Computed example of a mutant assay.
Amino acid sequence: MAMKSILDHKIISSRYFFPRPEPIAEPFWVDCGEHSLACWYQKSFADAFTLIHFHGNGEVVADYCDDFALEVQKLGLNCFLAEYRGYGLSEGQPALSGMLDDVPHIIEATGQRLDKLIVFGRSVGSLYALQAINVFPDIAGCIIESGIADLLERIMLRVNPEEIQVSYTELSQAVARDFNHHQKFEMYKKPVLIMHSQYDGLVDVTHGQRLFEWANEPKEIHIFERGDHNSVMYYNYEQYFSLIKQFMKNLER
């Protein structure tokens, strides 16, 4: 299959994604055409909001089936954990731009109305949560945790354009075409919650601040004083889920 974008080059994929096989009980399969994704869906409440969670690049759905899913259920939310190509039990190979095409399949697989969906993107998952609100601007709410404002900055830390036989300009244009987060937020008018750690050593807090600046009202940002990129939820566990609970209550008004 031809690359959707130079961002799907195997060198970028190998340095940006860290998939691992991990079984889960009762996977919820999402058909994306040439591959299927082994997601997980806990639909406990008939008329509740459904939280669709996109995890980080070094994580898998199995990491969230227990504590995270339980807390989401306590909030009275259905929980959909989206998996990526090549992660867990999913088929295919990870691809930055190519995986944008999987997002509509994931959203539609929930079987829920858009006004009953909340998308949640953590770290690299922010790329796909923002794609969801870009394609489906009627989604009820968007939560971004430890999110990425400038993908080009992140790629340049790991890949030299010459390695993939393109210029910096060509790489920059590819990012701007598929991952213009300023533009994606500009078109979205529903509530947004941004969460980030002040001491995130992988994705600097300025990314979260830029995302907040780009989002439309109503919006909220919370910068945690404890934890880092991979521990922000656990170091702020009670407050973390309290913020999600309040966000959900605001949607219900």
Rank of each mutant, 00 (worst) to 15 (best):
S5M: 12
S5D: 12
I12E: 11
I24K: 03
F28N: 06
W29G: 04
V30C: 10
G33Q: 06
S36A: 15
Q42V: 12
A48I: 04
T50R: 01
V61E: 04
A62G: 11
A69H: 06
E71G: 13
K74H: 11
G76C: 04
G76D: 04
F80P: 09
R85W: 11
S90A: 04
A95M: 12
G98M: 13
A109P: 13
G111H: 04
G111E: 10
G111N: 05
L114W: 08
F120Y: 14
G121V: 10
L127Q: 10
Y128H: 11
A129K: 06
V135D: 11
D138T: 15
I139E: 03
I143M: 07
E145P: 01
S146Y: 00
G147M: 09
R154L: 14
M156E: 12
R158W: 13
E162L: 08
T169Q: 15
E170F: 07
E170P: 07
Q183R: 10
K190S: 06
H196V: 11
H207S: 14
Q209T: 12
F212Y: 15
G227H: 01
N230Q: 03
V232F: 02
M233T: 00
Y234V: 00
Y234Q: 04
Y237S: 01
F241Y: 15
K245Y: 08
Q246H: 14
F247G: 02
E252L: 08
